[in-house]
């Protein structure tokens, strides 16, 4: 059983998935931040592979990626940073990036390397579902990687069913027609979309991301799905202060543990 499947079999609600960019703010922060997030109570970590042209991301994540690249982050460096991580934590780790990065590394080598260091799943937003089904599905299986696909408010019912069919681990439910990092309250229309998808009875758990930045957003997401994904808001925290204490405060703040902490 994959670490993600295992997690969702034990815990179906209030899942907190935190995104951060590997190699940000400092090149060697990757492992420290993973361990701090685990200790603070995050349930899943989505590790961004910094990319020069991140089409689906907003300015916050793009800037963190540019900084990480300036710091010297490369895929070979990242895999090296992760080589001992599984001796220190069993938190599910998912890599997020763009398909060109995987293509240039060599698809099969990349998947093999992911398995070797203990990566549980991949989020590649620009890998088309049908290309995945035709060319890579078997390879993901061979290397025990969960395939996490996105759905958006514009995805039709048939499309959502296809996403569910091809996804394993969980489905990344994009909250709004937007890139990452957009701030603002969750609207009535979004709630309707959350409810409609909830009624579809999909086989995969769903985590809601894009525009979730605080305790209120997290709570709303948890009401309509299995949990939430927070990225840009956490990157802003890292930019301001990346210490383990502040990381813990951030996670407590999202979960609403202020008073008991």
């Amino acid at each position: 059983m994959s670490r993600l499947t295992d997690l969702f079999s034990k815990k179906q609600s209030d899942i907190l998935n935190i995104y951060f960019t590997a190699g940000y703010p400092k090149l060697d922060d990757t492992e420290r931040i993973i361990l701090a997030l685990d200790k603070a109570g995050a349930d899943v970590i989505e590790l961004g592979m910094p990319y020069s042209d991140p089409m689906a991301d907003g300015p916050t994540i793009q800037e963190s990626g540019s900084q990480a690249l300036k710091n010297g982050m490369k895929l070979a460096v990242l895999f090296d940073q992760l080589k001992d991580v599984r001796t220190k934590t069993q938190i599910p780790l998912v890599l997020m990036g763009y398909f060109n990065q995987v293509m240039q590394f060599g698809e099969e080598q990349f998947f093999a390397k992911c398995m070797e260091v203990g990566i549980d799943g991949l989020i590649l937003p620009d890998l088309p579902l049908e290309v995945f089904a035709r060319e890579y599905k078997d390879m993901y299986k061979k290397y025990s990687l969960d395939s996490i696909f996105l759905m958006s408010p514009q995805s039709g019912e048939q499309r959502i069913k296809r996403v569910d069919e091809l996804s394993t681990g969980f489905i990344y439910m994009v909250a709004d027609a937007s890139i990452t990092g957009k701030q603002g309250e969750i609207t009535k229309k979004q709630i309707e979309y959350f409810e409609n998808v909830d009624k579809m009875g999909l086989k995969n758990p769903r985590l809601i991301g894009f525009g979730i930045s605080d305790h209120q957003g997290y709570t709303t997401a948890c009401n309509y799905a299995n949990g939430a994904i927070i990225g840009s808001a956490f990157i802003r925290q890292l930019k301001q202060n990346p210490s383990n204490e502040r990381i813990t405060d951030f996670i407590y703040g999202i979960k609403g543990h202020h008073l008991i902490a």
Partner: peptide, 8 residues
Amino acid sequence: FVPEMLYP
């Protein structure tokens, strides 16, 4: 090769 948000 587009993200799901652009697919429709």
